[in-house]
């Protein structure tokens, strides 16, 4: 087995801290002790591998993958982009999964009781593998904003949840896509758990007229960056040895 090449240390200042009191649920769900920093071993630099046998042809098409008697209601959109690493290299063949509310802001989930109706033709989840260039795309409808219990009048901006794997368990990431120009973005306590405005911009998909299908579907571009990896294989000596 070759010696492991490590992934770059995660920049924790770019991520939200665990304890963010304005997002109230985080208060009792955040560790109080510091994380213990681990030099990576095989347990961290390996991760699950997925293939085309794991997914079906329509899984990336949320307009069709749950349609019963027609298309879902809402603004038809394409969400596309590339999964890259911090070295700007594409991450090929990696699993990207999404989930979202329907155009009215309602989730198909037995725990969601918002008064906006369920759309009989919309499930709200999709998945795909990036191609050899790290490229992915989904077709869906633009999700609606919805209220949530935090302060009495908090609304989530329209968003799509993303889950991405990369090649190793230490690259594992769940995040959310927001849409350019949404006035709810600066008001949302979950968005604002991220202290760095530049990092929030990185979660804001841009309208992409080049990828829009005329007279049919509008497009947003959303690139995702996972941790990068050293290219030099030096293993530092064990402390105390």
């Amino acid at each position: 087995m070759t010696k492991p090449a490590e992934y770059y240390q995660r920049d924790r200042n770019r991520h939200p801290p665990a304890f963010t009191p304005t997002y109230k649920t985080s208060v009792a769900r955040s560790p109080r002790y510091s994380l213990i920093s681990l030099e990576q071993s095989a347990s961290e630099i390996t991760g699950p591998v997925f293939g085309h046998n794991d997914i079906a042809a329509l899984d990336h098409d949320l307009i069709r993958n749950y349609a019963k008697d027609g298309d879902p209601v809402g603004e038809r959109i394409i969400v596309h982009g590339r999964v890259l690493d911090e070295n700007a290299r594409p991450v090929p063949n990696t699993l990207v999964e999404i989930w979202q509310a329907n155009a009215g802001g309602r989730y198909r989930h037995k725990k969601d009781t918002y008064l906006a109706p369920i759309d009989p033709n919309f499930g709200g989840c999709g998945r795909t593998l990036t191609d050899e260039n790290g490229y992915y795309f989904f077709r869906t409808v633009k999700p609606g904003a919805y209220p949530w219990r935090n302060m009495v009048n908090n609304w989530r901006p329209a968003h799509i949840h993303f889950s991405v794997f990369g090649a190793s368990f230490c690259q594992r990431l769940i995040t959310q896509l927001y849409f350019e120009g949404d006035p709810l973005i600066p008001l949302c306590p979950i968005v604002q758990t991220i202290p760095d405005p530049d990092a929030i911009d990185q979660l804001t998909a841009r309208l992409d007229m080049n990828a829009t299908i005329p007279l049919d579907t509008i497009a947003y571009k959303f690139d995702i960056v996972l941790r990068g990896r050293r290219s030099t294989l030096f293993e530092n000596r064990l402390e105390g040895n």
Partner: peptide
């Protein structure tokens, strides 16, 4: 010219829909 890692956001209460 390194890129920066995409920041994390909570999986939220409806993670089951997607996963």
């Amino acid at each position: 010219d390194y890129l920066k890692e995409t920041p994390s956001q909570t999986a939220g209460p409806y993670v089951h829909i997607g996963l």
